[in-house]
């Protein structure tokens, strides 16, 4: 009996070892089921990080490095130039106009698309997306064709002494066109998801259409609205192609910040060009941070039982 015991113990030791080995193998197999071996993982992560670093991080860093290459004083001196100040002012005005217009009409368009069915709805959705996929240069071109000296409204405008092209209205119009999709695009899925029940409840309780909109619909989508406005603003301030075509490049008058970057760069005033560029880059970074925060709010608003 004791002999047998000893036997089984001495046998059990290598057996346990073999089993532990087999288990380790199987644990690795478990990892394989939904992920890759460690070396592959490391290569993929490295590729992703290197690619993003070269193509995204470095350009961003270069902007600030160049802007401060002659020191902080040179940087601020470049920003204090009257030309720079004029460009900043014009950019703010244009952004305010186009964001304002697109806020109102983006809300209405999203409302119409999300809450009603009507013929041509798909066509409308396609139209809203169009400025996203059209070259900004073409967006500028169409306004030149409309309001330019030889354009369809050109002579009429000249007779009434209204300047659209090569002036603030043209820049604002082109910017509005290019940034049109942002607010509507941010709101359509949100409003579709929320459906019409709450609005119907409000109306059945005696609220008017406007009351329903301001008391029920708007509070539900406020983060979405902010999100759309944020992206719309970033693009409005940074728009280059379309504005470049319609602005006429009149220094101190119709140069927005991106246009001024181009002019200064072509004149080899690199510090000045990158100083303005750094402001726009900061705008982009702030926009991204705010966007991340807003996205968190948007996801909180969703019904967690969906998943």
């Amino acid at each position: 009996m004791t002999m047998q015991m000893a036997d089984s113990v001495s046998l059990a030791a290598p057996d346990a070892e073999a089993r532990a080995k087999a288990r380790a193998h199987a644990e690795a197999a478990r990892d394989n089921l939904r992920t890759e071996p460690r070396p592959v993982r490391i290569i993929i992560i490295a590729l992703a990080m290197i690619f993003l670093s070269i193509f995204v991080v470095l350009p961003l860093v270069v902007v600030f490095a160049q802007a401060f290459s002659k020191g902080i004083l040179a940087y601020f001196a470049a920003l204090a130039e009257p030309e720079a100040l004029a460009a900043i002012k014009l950019t703010l005005i244009v952004a305010a106009i186009s964001v304002g217009l697109n806020l109102v009409f983006g809300l209405v368009a999203a409302w119409a698309i999300a809450k009603f069915d009507f013929p041509g709805k798909i066509f409308l959705i396609t139209l809203i997306d169009l400025p996203f996929s059209v070259s900004p240069v073409i967006s500028g071109l169409v306004f030149v064709l409309l309001f330019g000296a030889q354009g369809y409204f050109g002579s009429w405008l000249r007779d009434h002494d209204i300047q659209i092209l090569f002036a603030v209205p043209g820049i604002a119009l082109a910017t509005t066109f290019v940034t049109f999709p942002f607010v509507a695009r941010a709101l359509i899925p949100l409003m579709q998801e929320q459906g019409t029940q709450e609005e119907e409840a409000a109306i059945s309780l005696g609220a008017s259409g406007l009351q329903t909109f301001f008391r029920v619909t708007l509070p539900n989508i406020k983060w979405g609205v902010l999100y759309g406005v944020l992206l719309c603003n970033a693009r409005a301030m940074g728009e280059f192609g379309a504005v470049s075509v319609v602005s006429g490049h009149i220094r101190g008058e119709t140069n927005t910040m991106p246009l001024l970057v181009e002019i200064l760069y072509n004149e080899y005033q690199f510090v000045a060009a990158f100083a303005i560029a750094s402001l726009l880059a900061m705008l982009a970074l702030i926009t991204l941070i705010a966007k991340t925060v807003l996205e968190r709010h948007l996801h909180e608003g969703q019904d967690p039982s969906d998943h």
Partner: peptide, 23 residues
């Protein structure tokens, strides 16, 4: 074989199944 226990044994026909992966 889609999840793995912290401890314990699993035998198929008396053989250790935890030594095998799902596939």
């Amino acid at each position: 074989g889609l999840d793995w226990p912290d401890s314990g044994e699993l035998l198929f026909n008396g053989e250790d199944a935890l030594a095998q992966g799902a596939r």
